[in-house]
Amino acid sequence: MSYAEEIRRVSRGEYGDWTAALHERGVLTLLGAVLLVYLLLPFVSFFTWIEGLTLGAFVEPSVLSAIQYSLLTAPVSTALATVFGVPLAYVLARSSFPGKPLVDALVVLPLVMPPVVGGVMLLTAFGRFTALGGLAAGLSLPLTDSYLGIVLAQTFVASPFLIITARSGFAAIDREVEQAARSLGKGPLETFRLVSLPLARGSILAGIVLTFARAMGEFGATMMTAYHPHTMPTQIWVTFISNGVNATAPLVIALFAVGFAVVFALQSVGKRITFSS
């Protein structure tokens, strides 16, 4: 059956019965369903596990403080990754230069490396006893165990998501469309702003969503560079170690809610956002 015919059948409501879809794509649907069940299982089991949860647990000072730090740092990390990552993604998509494969590898490295290793390396660059870390601490801006330390860890671990998705978005733009803009009198920056950026906006927004989600959930590198103040993942770990699964419920639910809200908000904005010339 062609895709068009399938669309027509969907529009006629012929797939109202999900078993029809199962029948059409039998093996593929079953294989996909196995993973879906595996992904869903921990959520269901967690929410059936927890008991005795009260509203008061959500306003515990440690919970509120962790929510506050996560909500203050993840947007900043995402903004930093976006401001610097989008231009980098464009350059990687459009330019060739000596050593580009190394730059490509560097961009992916934080993804394939355990975050805790990233945290160790960040300590060697920005720790209190390094040149940079010492200088910053001298200016009362410590780069570890601080708000800045959390941002550094989140940006290091999460920015590859933005760079990789934005880069694929830029690479998919027809080069001749950008050349057309140049031949119509627009310089490289104007062409980037008026043509490349709007055409890659879907990929960039997807990258922002992924980066934000990763920054919100960042634990390994953050624990190494900024165990204090606790972000939500760090607080969940501390609470779990001292009080068990049940005690983590308020923060897990809060993390869950914030993640969902932000993802849906960005998706909604993405559909309506326009760029004019």
Binding site: A180, S183, L194, L199, S276
Partner: peptide, 27 residues
């Protein structure tokens, strides 16, 4: 952008995110 050379491409290269009027006004 500084050559005053207009170009019509084989694929036309119209700006897909702009309507025809905006395409014409672009340059």
């Amino acid at each position: 952008e500084d050559r005053q050379v207009g170009m019509v491409f084989q694929t036309y290269a119209l700006f897909p995110h702009l309507d025809v009027r905006q395409n014409l006004r672009f340059g």
